[in-house]
Design a protein around this nucleic acid. Structure first.
Lengths: 218, 218
DNA sequence: CGCTACCGAGACAGAGCGTCTTGGCAGCGA
DNA sequence: TCGCTGCCAAGACGCTCTGTCTCGGTAGCG
């Protein structure tokens, strides 16, 4: 593809790497995940097959690398929302709502291929774990001000959020995604039944405690 | 495997088919999904490779067939719970709780392989659709007696339940699964806030309407 | 101008695949 | 008892894709 090397060799390699990943994603979107071969990718990207093997060992690695870049971008976006100003409830809503929209648009854009690729091997587990950790932090802050139910730990609630919001990929439009976020958040709130134990109040108290948590993170 | 044909030819073929599916599942559990080859399956099952191709065209078909049998069994179990006696809330709780336990045990037993296989192609979409339909029926009955929030339609709530409960596969023990069901159900209940529109009462009224729905199904 | 690093193209052996043929065995009916 | 039919294991065959290697060519750099 790049006949003339762009500035440095480093930049050239990065450009070729990006071209490989983009070409592979296009081929997968066109012909499906199983039928894409290394030969096809090399031809489409305009590089030699041996050169392709110098960048990636197989098709899965290419798509995993592409997926990890997307995950990193989304994670940065969510971390930025997490560190914004506002009450823990507001930031929880922002993080979960944005994640749901990400799921929605990913499903609409990439189809089933990402899900098929992503559910195998350990790279996906790591990406999911980072998401759970991020959710857990926001949930912990919300729990500190009593905005969360106290009978389930934040790590289990984080897992609940992650899976519940993944339903956004099957929803038809963004208003449905918004309703899904509302429903998911409803599952997180303290039990309204009078007999249930609910030690933390619904108001935003413990402000100092959650500020301490936020700053102790970095 | 079966040197002497069992009774009829039909039964023999069924036995061979079962042996193939069981052998394949064992190999996938042992060596992973990607590395299992048709040659290996035929050798392990004690049949010829050409014979294997007379039963299944490829490895995926074998695992999909096995998965569909499991799904059918689980679906029957859930349908039985749906048609049991009791209030719609009780039956909703039973169906969702049982589905969560199924997810939990499946993840514990088969590992990541089922998820990896299951997320590609159209057979999985059909199985998921049948589950959503089943959920939707139980949710519709619960909505008829006012046990559900009225601001989200039962089909969207069914999708929410399906995905939220799939988190049970990542939970460590059954008590955590039970808490997940509690949280998921909390997302389904009518909004407790006084300002929110909540036309249906929390008590079990409209009993006749939901009985009508149940009997109109068959 | 020579050196180095990279690259495209092609060759090569190996693994799997999907099909076909061969020879053999189990059941069934005459 | 003897064919006849259906099924089967084993193996051969051509094919695709893989992963590695070598070759000749070219861009940058000193």
């Amino acid at each position: 593809m790049p006949k003339l090397w762009n500035e440095t060799i480093e930049a050239h390699r990065h450009a070729v790497r990006d071209a490989i990943m983009e070409t592979t994603a296009a081929l997968v979107g066109e012909h499906g995940l199983a039928s894409v071969k290394m030969t096809q990718i090399a031809e489409q990207a305009g590089i030699g097959r041996a050169t392709l093997y110098k960048y990636f060992p197989d098709v899965d690695s290419i798509l995993i690398a592409r997926h990890e870049e997307h995950v990193a971008a989304h994670l940065a976006q969510l971390a930025e929302l997490r560190d914004r100003a506002g009450t823990p409830e507001e930031r929880l809503h922002a993080v979960l709502g944005t994640y749901a929209l990400i799921c929605h648009h990913r499903a609409r854009h990439a189809g089933i291929d990402v899900a098929a690729l992503v559910h195998r091997g350990e790279p996906f587990a790591r990406a999911e774990q980072r998401l759970v950790d991020l959710f857990q932090e926001v949930l912990g802050e919300a729990a500190a001000v009593g905005a969360l139910r106290a009978d389930v730990s934040p790590d289990e609630l984080a897992l609940y959020c992650l899976h519940a919001l993944s339903a956004a990929g099957s929803l038809p439009d963004e208003s449905a995604v918004h309703r899904l976020v509302t429903v998911t958040l409803a599952g997180l709130r303290p039990a309204a039944a009078p007999g249930e134990p609910n030690p933390a109040g619904p108001a935003d108290r413990h402000r100092a405690a959650h500020e301490h948590q936020r700053h102790a993170r970095h």
